[in-house]
Amino acid sequence: MPDLDEILEKYPFVQRDNLIPVLQDIQDEFGYLSEEAIVKVGKYLNLPTVKIYGLATFYHHFRFIAKGKYHIKICNGTSCHVNSNILIINELEKKLGIKDEEITKDGLFSLEETTCMAACGEGPVMAVNDKYFTNLTIEKVAEIIDSYKSMEE
């Protein structure tokens, strides 16, 4: 894993418009933005940390806690909504005991609601890390989660 400095070195110009790309790169690498990272970026780009924090909390791709071992993205696009994805979301929340943007205590699962994933014909859709699951039903979701849980036992 490269350290922060390596990421920062890719941006030789101290310009405010580099802020979002820098943060994106850091998150791609570390999974989230730590306080340490924000302080470092602030020093590098000569920006007050409150401005970085204010910006990062504005955009919903930025997160401040690590992702779970299994990061679950559930599509909450319009089409999935009209295909009753709320039942799936409820089931996920019930099964995992967490809500959107949260992580389970054991660090295994984290949940994220996203906008359209472009598979509207197959909704409701979700992804666990890079694996996609389509045409979800409550039963199917329960099975999927259970299978991941049993892999950990």
């Binding site: 418009d17 580099n18 979002i20 790309p21 994106q24 504005f58 955009y59 919903h60 930025f62």
Partner: peptide
């Protein structure tokens, strides 16, 4: 190429410009 960071309001042109300048959208 500028990658957006997830904000519907950035579809609005002035918000988009703020975002490109490295600010809240």
């Amino acid at each position: 190429i500028k990658k957006g960071a997830g904000a519907y309001v950035c579809g609005e042109e002035t918000a988009l410009i703020s975002s490109l300048e490295g600010k809240r959208g």
